[in-house]
Each structure stands twice: as structure tokens, then as C-alpha cells.
């Protein structure tokens, strides 16, 4: 009996007192904002970071706060105004925030925060039902060019990564991105059902969402957005099929505006240590996330380019007024 109870108790304590294991820790006391409700992707990332920071002894305590609203627009506004110059605060965000800020005409932009590092990414995929006459990305391109209205894409929310990708695909094959017939669904489950039921021509999503269906042969993957084929996968990239479409749904961590170079270095070092810790690797494995660590100027540069690209696409499909 006893060992079971101890294990159970240990788990409960580990959960409840995630903050405050004094042993190895330094003096860092971090506050991490997830600009989304508890349970979503950004929240999970923040809480996973919290776990890894404390487990690896990099920070003495990490507190996660949730500020939900409008794809992160509410959170980033509060972060920029409330955490200015505070070297102990960070915010998780990702690809979706870039589009959300532009679409919501947010007064606060990503230029105002201090980029620290990109942490994870997920490769995107286009799938068609197994019995679809479309076999390759070029087939889909031909269908788009023949009659763009009849090619329906199912994916996530309007202006999100799936929508941006549909427009980029159309643009890359020489069709009119403005006329893409994109149908947003809430949640991967619903869009997957529409694809399996043959209600739409093709589906766009992150790789993990459709993995099981692709392996079981119910869906055919006609291309992925990575530079090279994914390890252990025989799905061709768009690039090798002659379509210039490289894209990933990334998540990153930012610091407030107005922090000193020294404060920035402390945070960057802490994040780097965290990313290299075993605890983080364990988290990545458990959640099935891909490591995409990129920091410093390289990340700042990446962020700038991504912002320009996404804003342009959203303008072209009319989601952002130019």
C-alpha cells in the first residue's frame, strides 16, 4: 500500500508546489504569460516551460498567468504596457498571433516586444480523401488553375496558419490567392470529418493532427511544408514537387519592451539552458513537439520576415485592409 500512496502523493505535490524547490536553483523568479485560456497550445507551452525551468533548477519559481482574448491581442497589450522593463517576465506566443494582431488592428505590435527565442514548430500538410482523383500537389495545382472556386480547403480559423497556407499555396502555383475557397472549421476534429466525408476537396492542418489517418490510408498526404522530407516519412515536400511553399507553425517566447541588454542576456541564457535540459526534451517527447530552437538576431530576423509575409498574405485575401 505505502509505495502507491507515496507515488500518488509525490505526484500531487509535484503538481501543486511546482514553484519552490530550493535545491539547485538560482535567484530567478519568472513570470510567464500565456496570452490564451488555460488548456490551449500556448498555455501548454508555458506550463511545460514552467516544469522544465524548475526541474532543471534554472529558476527558483515560475508563475504562469493566462490572459485570454482575440488570438493573443489582449495578452500582448497587457504585456507591453504592464511588464515594460521587467527582466523577470516573458510571454509565450506563436504564428497565429502575427495574423491576429494584423486582423484585429491591434495598437500593439510584435515590434514592441523583445524577441528571445523560437522554441518549437510543427510542419503543415495538405491532405485529400483516399478516393480523391488528386494524387499529387501538381494535380491540386491544376485543379486550382482550372476552376479555383470549386476547390474547397478545410482548415482552422480564418487568418490562422492553415488559411495563410491555403493562400500561399494558391499564390505559389500561379492561381489568384484572393479567390481561394477556404472554409474555416473550429477544431481539427470537425474539419477532418468534412475531409473524410468528402465534403471538401482538401484539408490543411498540422502534421500531428492527421498523422493517424495518413498512416491508416484514409487520407492521402500530397505534400508537407518542410524544406526536406520529415525523418522516417515518405511524404514528398512541396518544394521537391516544384512548388515554393515552406512554412511551419512555430511557438516562441518573448520578453517585455525596454529591458536592458543585461536583462535580455539573462533571460536568453536561461531559455537556452532550459531548451537543453533533459526535462524539456522529456516534455517535447511527451507532447510530440519538434524542437525548433532559434535565438538572438537570427530569431529577430526570422520574426520580422514572418510578420511581413503573413501580413502580405492576409492583405491579399482581404482579411487585413491595406
Amino acid at each position: 500500500m505505502i509505495p502507491f500512496h507515496t507515488r500518488l502523493f509525490g505526484a500531487a505535490v509535484a503538481l501543486t508546489l511546482a514553484a519552490g524547490s530550493p535545491a539547485l536553483s538560482q535567484q530567478l523568479e519568472l513570470k510567464l504569460m500565456a496570452p490564451a485560456a488555460p488548456g490551449g497550445g500556448w498555455d501548454q507551452t508555458a506550463r511545460a516551460m514552467q516544469q522544465a525551468f524548475v526541474a532543471a533548477g534554472i529558476a527558483r519559481s515560475v508563475q504562469v498567468t493566462n490572459v485570454a482574448g482575440a488570438g493573443g491581442s489582449v495578452g500582448i497589450a497587457q504585456f507591453v504596457n504592464g511588464a515594460k522593463g521587467d527582466g523577470n517576465q516573458m510571454m509565450v506566443n506563436g504564428f497565429v498571433m502575427v495574423g491576429a494582431l494584423a486582423m484585429n488592428k491591434s495598437p500593439v505590435t510584435l515590434e514592441q516586444v523583445t524577441p528571445i527565442a523560437r522554441l518549437t514548430e510543427e510542419i503543415q500538410v495538405i491532405v485529400v480523401p483516399a478516393n480523391s482523383p488528386i494524387k499529387t500537389a501538381q494535380d491540386l495545382a491544376a485543379a486550382l488553375k482550372a476552376d479555383i472556386a470549386k476547390v474547397t480547403f478545410a482548415g482552422g480559423s480564418a487568418g490562422g496558419v492553415d488559411h495563410v497556407m491555403a493562400a500561399l499555396f494558391a499564390g505559389a502555383v500561379g492561381a489568384d490567392a484572393k479567390k481561394v475557397n477556404y472554409i474555416p472549421f473550429s477544431g481539427g476534429g470537425e474539419s477532418l470529418a468534412a475531409i473524410l466525408g468528402g465534403k471538401v476537396t482538401a484539408g490543411i492542418s498540422g502534421m500531428s493532427e492527421y498523422d493517424g489517418q495518413i498512416k491508416s490510408g484514409k487520407l492521402r498526404a500530397i505534400g508537407v511544408t518542410s524544406e526536406k522530407r520529415l525523418p522516417g516519412s515518405d511524404i514528398p515536400t512541396f518544394k521537391e514537387q516544384g512548388i515554393d511553399l515552406v512554412l511551419a507553425n512555430w511557438r516562441a517566447v518573448m520578453a517585455p519592451p525596454g529591458i536592458t541588454a543585461e536583462q535580455k542576456k539573462t533571460l536568453s541564457d536561461a531559455v537556452e539552458k532550459m531548451v537543453k535540459s533533459d526535462a524539456w526534451k522529456e516534455v517535447l517527447k511527451q507532447k510530440g513537439w519538434d524542437n525548433a530552437y532559434l535565438s538572438g538576431d537570427a530569431f529577430a530576423d526570422f520574426l520580422k520576415k514572418e510578420t511581413v509575409r503573413v501580413t502580405d498574405v492576409l492583405k491579399s485575401v482581404g482579411l487585413v485592409k491595406s
Partner: peptide
């Protein structure tokens, strides 16, 4: 859903 999300880590160790 949130209840499960919050308590899920308790079950990890079993």
C-alpha cells in the same frame, strides 16, 4: 475539460 487538464499531471506517475 479544465478539471481534467489541471489534474492530468497527478496521473502521470502511476
Amino acid at each position: 475539460a479544465l478539471t481534467v487538464a489541471l489534474l492530468l499531471p497527478v496521473t502521470y506517475k502511476l
